[in-house]
Design a binder for these strands. Sequence first.
RNA 1: GGGCAGGUUCCAGAGUGGCCAAAUGGGACGGGCUGUAAACCCGUUGCGGAAACGCUUCGGAGGUUCGAAUCCUUCCCUGCCCA
Length: 423
Amino acid sequence: MSGNIYDELKERGFIAQVSDETAVRKMLDGEPITFYVGFDSTASSLHAGSLVPIMAMVHLRRAGHRAIAVVGSGTTMVGDPSGKTEMRQMLDETTIRTQGQAILIQFAHYLHFDGTNAIAVDNADWLLPLNYVAFLRDIGRHFSVNRMLAAEAYKLRLEKGLSFIEFNYQLLQAYDYLTLYRKYGCTLQMGGDDQWGNILAGVDLIRRVEGGTAEALTFPLLTTASGAKMGKTAQGAVWLDAMLFSPYDFYQYWVNCDDRDVGRFLKIFTLLPLDEVSRLESLKDSEVNEAKRILAFEATKITHGEVEAENARKATAAAFGGKTVNPDPAKGQFGMGDITVLPTTAVPRARLEAGISPAELFTEVGLTPSRREAKRLVEQGGLYVNDERIDTVERLVTVKDLGPDGGMLLKAGKKKFHRVVAG
RNA sequence: GGGCAGGUUCCAGAGUGGCCAAAUGGGACGGGCUGUAAACCCGUUGCGGAAACGCUUCGGAGGUUCGAAUCCUUCCCUGCCCA
């Protein structure tokens, strides 16, 4: 694959648009270049959607190119209106900076920042000290309002309202690119496809100000086959931070993906070789579950490490039953799972002896959001203790439900599990 | 700054003094069928309560009324037109 990284990215589905395909292919397949990707600091953690650029960076880094990860504390203070229906809530500087730092720390899981081949910077460092009038004269004059207003990315906002602060966002991102071009010789910026306009603005700016050539590459904005945004669940984002979204849930997110998404996801979210991916992709019917398990394991391994991935795999095997007698790990089959690695809560023995109402217990361990909801689920037959359906809200959960291993398995619906032990 | 139209439950969007915890659609959730998939069918979808029933919600704060999402005052916010 060496010397052919551009085509590998393309084949894996990382490329939506490129400024000049021939030029970019030549750049990436030749001597090391410097590229950058920017990330918002709107939250203290990245989420599954950010994995697309992260994985692309990993691929390019492996191919020997120099990576710059830019945390956009400066730009986040302004807010990007591209493709958004409304203005984001304004965050204060301290919050944004703190979140930016958290993101950089998280980033170190994927790229080793040695300061030479992989660099982490925050654009607040050069954006915040800018002088307004000087900036308008040096940078602002290169931007055409007419052209900006015509951009597809602002169309929605021209109907619903666009504030001046947001209108400036593109200039700042373009200035970022110019800064990195000057300071590090950065000649490729990558980002989500919604960033196309912003990235091109930087390419233009570099040409106008420096007479230099720089390129743009965007990743497709992935949606699931059912049309949902990648990395979002009904409960919220699929965070990469284990504290916000457990490795077990992360693993589940991938196992639960739509059949139609498995191939695409394997190519983008794992580092498995393409021939292995095409083998997994060709699996039919229930066999695709094998591919999903591998996808889930590999993706979890990259973000949370092998130990956590293994635990999530075991917990899953326990919860969903190990039906395979002679497991073959090479096929994504594993033996009986280890139930103790499921999320567990200890409940005082005395309370279990007295008996706890299911509504109270399920809500306490977080399987249901409220007692009211738990009761509703009981009425609908959606709550189980040790795989036995609870058919009345008066059925108390007691010490008798504890199994030989000293624990019991609570289940809400078919997929949400929680273990309870006496403690 | 002036004129007009708006701010309703996760979203869209009805409701315009009691029949409103609030129509309808989407989403989500549960059950059935399955393969922890899709499609489809049925049901649920503010909180507390075993239940009876109670409590909190319709941009914020006050007020009128036996009773307000609905009327009044004021404030905040958004869009459109004019400047």
